Simulated scan of single mutants.
Amino acid sequence: MFEKRHYVPILKWKQGEQKAIELLPLTVKQGLTPLLEIPPIDWDFENEAPKKTIDEHLANVSETLSRSWGLDRPLYLDLNFIESNERMASGQHPLGYIFNQLRTDGINAIPVTGTNRDSAYQIEVISAHQRDQLGICIRLTEEDFDDLQVNIDSLLTTLGVDTTEIDLVIDYKYVNPNDRTRTALFISGLINGLPYLNSWRNLILCGTAFPKDLSDVGSNTIDQIERSEWIIWKRLIQTNRVNRTLTFGDYAIANPEPFEADPRLIRMSANIRYTGDDKFIIFKGRDLRKYGHHQYYQLAAQAVAHQEYKGAGFSAGDHYIQEVANQSTTPGNPATWRRAGTNHHLTLVVNELSTVALP
Rank of each mutant, 00 (worst) to 15 (best):
I204H: 06
I266S: 07
D72W: 04
Y76K: 02
L203G: 01
Q298K: 12
S228V: 08
D132V: 00
P74E: 06
L65E: 11
Q122P: 00
T245Q: 09
E323C: 02
G160P: 08
V304S: 01
T355S: 11
R139L: 13
W43Q: 05
L75I: 15
L58V: 15
G114Y: 03
A301V: 00
E63L: 10
D287L: 01
D146T: 12
S62D: 11
I166H: 10
I110H: 13
T33M: 13
T141H: 04
D105C: 05
R103I: 00
K29Q: 05
I272P: 03
E17T: 05
K234F: 15
E143A: 15
V28G: 09
R131I: 11
L32C: 06
H306K: 09
G332P: 02
I282Y: 11
T336C: 00
R182D: 14
Q224F: 09
I21G: 03
D147W: 11
L205I: 12
I136T: 06
E22P: 01
Y297F: 14
N178F: 09
V112G: 10
Y7G: 00
E260D: 11
P331Y: 06
S354N: 15
K279G: 01
N351L: 04
I152P: 05
L194S: 03
K12F: 02
V61L: 10
P211N: 00
N220E: 13
Q92H: 08
L140Q: 08
T239K: 12
V356I: 11
I54C: 01
K279S: 07
N151K: 15
C137P: 06
I136G: 10
R235M: 12
A128G: 04
I170Y: 05
L299M: 05
P359N: 15
S199V: 02
T164M: 11
R182F: 08
I110V: 15
G135V: 09
K51H: 02
C206D: 03
G292I: 01
S62F: 12
A303P: 10
R103P: 02
F210W: 03
Q322N: 08
K51V: 09
Q295H: 07
L35M: 14
P256R: 01
V304N: 01
I170W: 03
A209E: 09
Q298V: 14
I272S: 01
L205H: 12
P258G: 12
W69E: 10
P39F: 12
K29W: 07
T347F: 02
A301Q: 15
A340D: 08
P258R: 06
N178D: 07
M88T: 04
